[in-house]
């Protein structure tokens, strides 16, 4: 935050627009560069949350999966605050294999 931002805030004026421009550009370019449409991104976000929540209890309100871009490289960034690990941890697919081993 700059001195100008503070003064603008005190006077109840709109913040300077350059920063808004930068943030909007970064967001739109992350999408342009990845060629992912919003619908697909939304679906991916849902599935990621689904997988992660199988293992740990996550804070869905605070969690976020977004595209970020730096130096022309786009990254999928997931920020998922963990409330607690789920017990018992072994995933559903692994369980039959264990059983089979025990029998042999």
């Amino acid at each position: 935050m700059t001195l100008r931002d503070v003064i603008n805030k005190l006077l109840g004026r709109q913040p300077a627009s350059a920063n808004t421009a930068k943030e909007r550009l970064q967001l739109v370019l992350a999408h342009d560069r990845s060629d992912l449409n919003p619908e697909l991104l939304q679906q991916m976000r849902r599935e990621i949350l689904e997988v992660v929540s199988r293992y740990v209890e996550i804070d869905l309100e605070e969690g976020d999966v977004t595209l970020e871009t730096e130096d022309r490289v786009t990254a999928l960034v997931a920020n998922l605050p963990i409330r607690r690990a789920k017990l018992p941890p072994p995933p559903a697919e692994a369980a039959p294999a264990l059983e089979a081993n025990a029998n042999s």
Binding site: A16, S17, A18, K22, L25, Q26, L29, D71, R72
Partner: peptide, 17 residues
């Protein structure tokens, strides 16, 4: 630019790399 009402030079070069 001084009034921060225009993207700074570094904003543009950073974004476009």
């Amino acid at each position: 630019m001084a009034n921060q009402e225009m993207l700074a030079v570094s904003d543009v070069t950073d974004i476009l790399a």
